[in-house]
Design a binder for these strands. Structure first.
Length: 260
DNA sequence: ATGGCCTTGGTACAAGGA
C-alpha cells in the first residue's frame, strides 16, 4: 500500500500532472491540497477515468482539498468537527482499513498577521480532534501540507528562518503535540540524506539552489509504524514543466495495512 | 546581480502563498 500527499497549487492548472503522476506511481491514496476549485468545478470525471475514486471539498481561489483513492473512501469528514472554519482545509475518509486524514494547515503569513493566531487556534482544534480520531482508528495516517518545518535540519537556512512563520517555536510545539498523540513523522523513521525539502519558493532560483523547507509530512499511528517501509520526497516532479512549488511525498507499507 | 515567481480574479494589478 502506498499513500501520498501533494500540494498542487491549483488543480485547474495541475490536473494533467496529477493524472500523469497517478499513472506513474499508482498510489493507493493521494491527498491533494490547494485545489482552489469550488465543488461544482472539481474534475472528478477525469480522475475517475484514471481508475480512482475521489472525494473533494473546495472553495473559490484559495485552499481546497481532495482524497483520491483506488478503493472507495467511507465515513468522509470535511474540516475539523467542532472547529468552525470558513476555509476548506481538511478531508478525511477510511480507505482499506486505514483512516486517512488529509490536511492543509494554514500558512500564517507572518507572526504579526491576524492569520498567525488563526493558524495556532486551527492547530489546537486539529490536535483536539485527532486525539479522538486516534482513539477511534488505531490505523491512522495524517498527511498533507503542514506549513511547519519541524526542526532546523528541515530548513535550508535556519538562521535566516529563525523565528519566522513556519519555523516558530509555537508552530514547532504544535507539531510535537501531534507526535505526542502517538503519531510518527515517517520521513524521520529512516536514515535520510541531508537537505531534503518538500517546498521551494518559485522566486530567487530557490529550487535550483535547493533552498527549500520540509513542510509536507506523512504521520502515522503506532499501529501503522512497523509497516512503513519507506518515506520518499518525489523531488523530480518539482522539475516538471509548470511545476507546483511543492513536491509530492509518499509512504510505502511493507504489507497491506488492511490485511490485519 | 543582497533580484530573480505563480495563481486568481478579471481585464490592471493587488493579494496570497511560504
Amino acid at each position: 500500500m502506498k499513500l501520498a500527499t501533494w500540494n498542487v497549487n491549483s488543480l485547474a492548472v495541475r490536473l494533467p500532472q496529477v493524472l500523469g503522476w497517478l499513472g506513474a506511481h499508482q498510489p493507493d491514496v493521494l491527498c491533494l491540497q490547494e485545489t482552489k476549485l469550488t465543488d461544482d468545478k472539481f474534475p472528478h470525471v477525469e480522475i475517475e477515468a484514471a481508475g480512482y475514486h475521489v472525494q473533494w471539498f473546495g472553495q473559490k481561489t484559495y485552499n481546497g482539498v481532495a482524497l483520491i483513492s483506488k478503493l472507495p473512501a467511507t465515513d468522509i469528514v470535511r474540516n475539523i468537527p467542532g472547529h468552525d472554519d470558513p476555509q476548506a482545509r481538511v478531508i478525511a475518509g477510511t480507505v482499506g482499513g486505514v483512516r486517512v486524514v488529509g490536511v492543509y494547515i494554514p500558512n500564517g503569513q507572518s507572526i504579526e498577521s491576524e492569520k498567525f493566531p488563526y493558524k495556532l487556534a486551527w492547530l489546537a482544534g486539529l490536535r483536539r480532534w485527532l486525539a479522538q480520531e486516534c482513539a477511534e482508528h488505531p490505523r491512522l495516517a495524517v498527511l498533507g501540507d503542514y506549513n511547519i518545518a519541524p526542526e532546523d535540519r528541515d530548513v535550508h537556512d535556519p538562521l535566516a528562518w529563525a523565528g519566522q512563520v513556519l519555523c516558530t517555536p509555537d508552530e514547532r510545539a504544535h507539531f510535537q503535540g501531534l507526535l505526542a498523540l502517538g503519531l510518527h513523522d515517517t520521513f524521520r523513521l529512516f536514515e535520510q540524506a541531508p537537505k531534503q525539502y518538500s517546498w521551494w519558493d518559485y522566486r530567487m532560483l530557490a529550487f535550483r539552489k535547493n533552498q527549500g523547507l520540509r513542510i509536507d509530512h506523512i504521520l502515522v499511528s503506532d499501529a501503522l509504524r512497523p509497516l512503513v517501509a519507506a518515506c520518499v520526497i518525489d523531488k523530480p516532479t518539482r522539475k516538471n514543466e509548470r511545476p507546483s512549488d511543492h513536491a509530492p511525498v509518499m509512504v510505502t507499507f511493507t504489507d497491506e495495512p488492511a490485511a490485519g
